[in-house]
């Protein structure tokens, strides 16, 4: 455990807290992509299947359960709970996620660390996480202007990815035998997806002003 990894996990948790606060306190899921949240739920449920047989630390196991619980709760609220379910707009949030899930499943079957079922599922979850934010980014793009809490949510997720990237660099130079090509590749792609958002986030938040983020 290093500081980058820890802060990365904390900003990941922060992103869940921001999103849960937004949809429970604000009673609205407007601007939030249910598609992205469903993808995250699939990602966590498939990657953390090993909760049943792998134990690395209490910290890890606890956070795995937290991530599955939070993403499931978010999907449940937006899909089934009133009044939030009536604020979700399926016409706006219509990214065809089958085109993300399909190729990631094929990639998971073909490119993995070891030819076992769990390694295939695990690789699938890594690939899917890399692109899971796309429906959310497309939704923001369509809306043009992004509500503050939503922009903080995406920023917290982006920070989590950036910090994990630094964690990998740190581990590569401080540990022997630390090689994770699949994770590094997918993680770099994933972090890259946030670069454009961060540019606009910085533009609208600089000078301490709390203006909504405007996307072209």
């Amino acid at each position: 455990m290093n500081i980058f990894r820890f802060l990365g996990d904390m900003s990941h948790i922060l992103s869940f807290v921001i999103l849960l606060l937004k949809i429970t306190q604000g009673k609205s899921a407007a601007g939030i992509s249910l598609r992205t949240q469903e993808l995250y739920m699939i990602v966590f449920c498939s990657r953390y299947l090993d909760l049943f047989w792998n134990f690395s630390s209490l910290y890890n196991s606890f956070l795995k359960v937290v991530f599955i619980a939070c993403s499931s709760a978010i999907v449940y609220i937006i899909r089934f709970k009133s009044p939030q379910k009536d604020t979700w707009n399926p016409e706006l949030d219509n990214f065809p996620i089958q085109y993300l899930i399909g190729p990631c499943a094929v990639a998971g079957l073909l490119i993995n660390q070891d030819w076992t079922p769990f390694e295939m599922i695990w690789a699938f979850s890594i690939y899917l996480e890399a692109v899971a934010i796309l429906p959310q980014l497309f939704l923001l793009q369509k809306q043009g202007e992004v509500e503050n809490l939503t922009s903080h949510y995406v920023a917290a997720l982006g920070a989590y990815r950036g910090l994990y990237l630094m964690n990998w660099v740190y581990r590569y130079f401080t540990e022997d035998d630390y090689l994770q090509r699949i994770v590094w590749f997918a993680g770099t792609v994933q972090t890259g997806l946030y670069i454009d958002f961060f540019y606009h986030y910085y533009q609208s938040k600089r000078g301490g002003l709390s203006r909504p983020v405007k996307l072209p």
Binding site: F67, Q113, Q180
Partner: peptide
């Protein structure tokens, strides 16, 4: 033999 990375990240 391929070395499997330990799954100690989230």
């Amino acid at each position: 033999e391929m070395l499997l990375a330990e799954k100690d990240e989230l």
